[in-house]
């Protein structure tokens, strides 16, 4: 199956995606963690590239970014590590990070490097729709890199439709308007909003993120969406000295 097909297939559901920061806890742990996640049952990955000023992130991911930067992680270093990505990992991989690092690397260079190593797309929270459309969409398309957009409970229907038209992979649905790593209760209000999105019958599948941390929140989210993303809760696992041995049980604890 082509890596991207899991988002299109009607058969796939309950997809689990895991976010982690490249270069954390060790500079060279990126590929080892990816392999372990795939074998443990994760369905796709988001690998974060660190930035000094991550305004959308809470303390856990901020800390992982600081450590990664101290370890020497850069986009250049990350692409080097990912050179043989596709001989180790077959599930879809997205890169996630802030726009300034991409801008300095060069947007076209970034897309080219993503294509070269087999990365499927990018999530750049502070690259807004207008700037993407005006300045960068053609470049992303040229290299076949999917840009993933976020939708929050406050995003208007008109804007969601627009995002749906610009998207070619999935839409990243935020469970609430918040920074990452909040302990969110997926309550009646959130469920109402998930239902509203589900009823819009968008062409792209929805994947819910922010506040998904355990089996219960994952189950709830995936009754409304094709998948859900766990970030901070997993990054916390990586802070354990014995993290390589904890990854499998963490994933199994969510999925079964």
């Amino acid at each position: 199956m082509h890596t991207q097909d899991i988002f299109k297939s009607d058969n796939s559901k309950g997809l689990l995606s895991i976010y982690y920061t490249a270069g954390y806890p060790n500079l060279d742990s990126t590929i080892a963690i990816a392999k372990k996640l795939e074998s443990a049952g994760a369905d796709f990955l988001e690998i974060g590239f660190p930035y000094s000023d991550p305004i959308a992130d809470g303390p856990v991911i901020q800390h992982s970014s600081e450590v990664a930067l101290r370890n020497g992680m850069t986009l250049q270093c990350l692409f080097q590590q990912l050179q043989d990505l596709r001989s180790h990992v077959s599930i879809p991989v997205f890169l996630m990070g802030y726009f300034n690092t991409v801008l300095q690397y060069g947007v076209e260079n970034f897309c080219k490097s993503c294509q070269a190593v087999g990365v499927n797309g990018a999530i750049i929270p502070d690259l807004p729709i207008y700037e993407y459309e005006e300045l960068y969409q053609d470049t992303f398309k040229q290299y076949g890199i999917n840009n993933i957009f976020l939708v929050t409970p406050q995003t208007s229907e008109e804007r969601i439709r627009k995002i749906d038209n610009l998207s070619h992979s999935f839409i990243y649905l935020l469970s609430s308007n918040a920074t990452t790593g909040k302990n969110l209760e997926v309550g009646a209000q959130a469920e109402q909003y998930f239902q509203r999105l589900k009823d819009m019958d968008l062409k792209n599948p929805l994947v819910i993120g922010f506040g998904i941390s355990d089996r219960e929140t994952f189950r709830k989210a995936t009754t409304y969406a094709k998948g859900a993303i766990i970030g901070s809760a997993f990054v916390r696992v990586l802070s354990d000295d014995d993290y390589m041995n904890k990854i499998e049980s963490f994933i199994k604890g969510i999925k079964t």
């Binding site: 929270p125 807004p128 957009f149 976020l150």
Partner: peptide, 11 residues
């Protein structure tokens, strides 16, 4: 200039 903000700040 512009407004390079995550969707959470958009509203």
């Amino acid at each position: 200039g512009g407004a390079y903000i995550p969707e959470m700040l958009y509203p």
